[in-house]
Computed example of a mutant assay.
Amino acid sequence: MNKAELINAMAAESGLTKADSKKALDAFVASVSKAMKTGEKVSLVGFGTFSVAERAARTGINPSTKQPLHIAAKKVVKFKPGAELTAE
C-alpha cells in the first residue's frame, strides 16, 4: 500500500474527504517525525511503539574492493508492533 492508497483507505474508513485524510496523515507523519528527532517514544496502544535506538560505530567491508571501511555511529528508528497488530 502506498501513500495514495492509504489516504483512500482512511477516507473510506473514517468518512472524511480525501483532502482531510491527506491532511490528517501528513500531520501524523510530521508529529511522529518531530518526536523521533527529539528522541521521544511514540506509543499507540494496540498498534505499536516507535522508538529511537543508537547504533555504535563499526568496521565494514567494501564488497567491490574488499577494503575495510569505518561506518559511523548513527541513530535509527525502530518499530515494535503491538499485540493486536501482530499476524497470527
Rank of each mutant, 00 (worst) to 15 (best):
N2R: 15
N2W: 10
A4I: 09
E5N: 13
N8S: 14
A12S: 14
E13A: 15
E13R: 15
S14Q: 08
S14R: 06
T17Q: 11
K18Q: 13
K18E: 06
K18S: 03
A19L: 13
D20M: 11
S21W: 05
K22C: 00
K23F: 00
L25A: 02
D26I: 09
D26Q: 11
A27D: 04
F28N: 09
F28A: 14
A30L: 06
A30D: 14
S31K: 10
V32Q: 09
V32W: 01
S33F: 01
K37T: 11
K37G: 12
K37M: 14
T38H: 04
T38R: 10
G39M: 01
E40N: 13
V42M: 07
S43G: 07
V45H: 09
G46S: 06
F47L: 14
G48E: 11
T49V: 12
F50R: 11
V52G: 01
E54A: 14
R55Q: 12
A57P: 04
R58I: 03
R58P: 05
R58C: 06
G60Y: 07
I61D: 00
I61L: 06
P63N: 02
T65E: 11
K66Y: 01
Q67P: 09
L69E: 02
L69M: 15
H70I: 07
A73C: 04
K74E: 03
K80M: 04
P81Y: 08
P81V: 06
G82R: 10
L85F: 14
T86R: 15
T86P: 12
T86A: 13
A87G: 13
A87L: 13
